[in-house]
Design a protein around this nucleic acid. Structure first.
Length: 274
DNA sequence: ATGCCTTCTAAAAGAAGA
């Protein structure tokens, strides 16, 4: 099984030991990280390499920052930065090939407060993502789009929408963008695996929301048609959120069966017998 | 309507997160 995870780490420097412990215990094959909150030279590449992972990263002072890790290999970078706005200097997208899949790692703008310029930027960024993702979807390659989308897709993805109704994460425009993206044919892997369950990936630091399990599902892994049939399992590593000094997000993961198709495999066995 | 809590920056409070 190929295990792919996404984790908004909320500061790579203050969370590097947590990252290493999680890598050691869960051993994902590919990891997408968001919110490094550090410039490129501060990325703990040596410690990550000692843990058995190659990495590429696109940092930024104070905010944003994304990275892709791959177990036992260096990810082959195919893009950094989303196309469509050369004036956009925020580090929010990085993409690489690793272990036979193409991985887009994204950190979609939060968009608060709304309305306002930050919300406009969120929607504009989302529209650029939708435009670019169409090509990825149709590329014929196995592609996963993973990251912090900063969208609560439906009211089933939050403990109680009432106190978040004015938040950028729940706005109809944000949700509409997410639906438009899925309408290209992407499969929301966690929701596909658990159609009915209440699943959260983020619990804010306020009001003991973690202790009360008052969470939101905003970190997603989307699969294109080459990968969706291979989905076998998905989950959230909630134990990471319960550790001392944890990020406000927990890692989200999927497992894909990347073995050859059954028809091809049976043909292979038949050929071997003959 | 705002703060709640946390990180980062930078040296004290402020911005940003979601």
């Amino acid at each position: 099984m190929l295990k792919i995870a996404t984790y908004n780490i909320n500061g790579i420097r203050s969370r590097s030991s947590a990252l290493l412990e999680w890598l050691r215990r869960e051993a994902p094959d590919i990891v997408c990280l968001q919110e490094l909150k550090a410039p490129d030279p501060a990325f703990p590449a040596d410690a990550i390499r000692e843990a058995g992972y190659g990495a590429i990263w696109h940092g930024q002072v104070s905010w944003n920052g994304v990275a892709i890790l791959a177990k036992g290999m260096d990810p082959i970078e195919s893009r950094r930065g989303l196309p469509g706005d050369k004036g956009d200097t925020q580090s929010r997208y990085i993409e690489a090939a690793a272990h036979g899949v193409l991985v887009g790692c994204l950190y979609l703008p939060n968009g608060n407060p709304q309305p306002g310029p930050k919300f406009d930027y969120k929607l504009a960024w989302f529209e650029r993502l939708i435009a670019y993702a169409a090509g990825l979807h149709d590329s014929g390659h196995p592609v996963v789009l993973a990251g912090d989308f900063n969208v609560v897709p439906t009211d089933e993805d939050i403990y109680n929408p009432k106190s978040w109704l004015k938040d950028a994460l729940l706005q109809p425009e944000s949700r509409e963008c997410y639906r438009w993206l899925l309408a290209q044919g992407w499969v929301d892997a966690v929701r596909a695996r658990y159609p009915q369950e209440r699943i959260y990936t983020f619990w804010d630091y306020f009001r003991q929301h973690w202790q009360k399990n008052s969470g939101l599902r905003i970190d997603h892994l989307l699969l294109n048609p080459q990968l969706a049939p291979r989905l076998r399992d998905a989950g959230v590593d909630r134990w990471v959120r319960g550790e001392p000094h944890a990020s406000d997000h927990a890692p989200v993961w999927i497992e894909l069966d990347m073995s050859a198709k059954k028809k091809a495999a049976s043909r292979g066995r038949a050929a071997a017998k003959a």
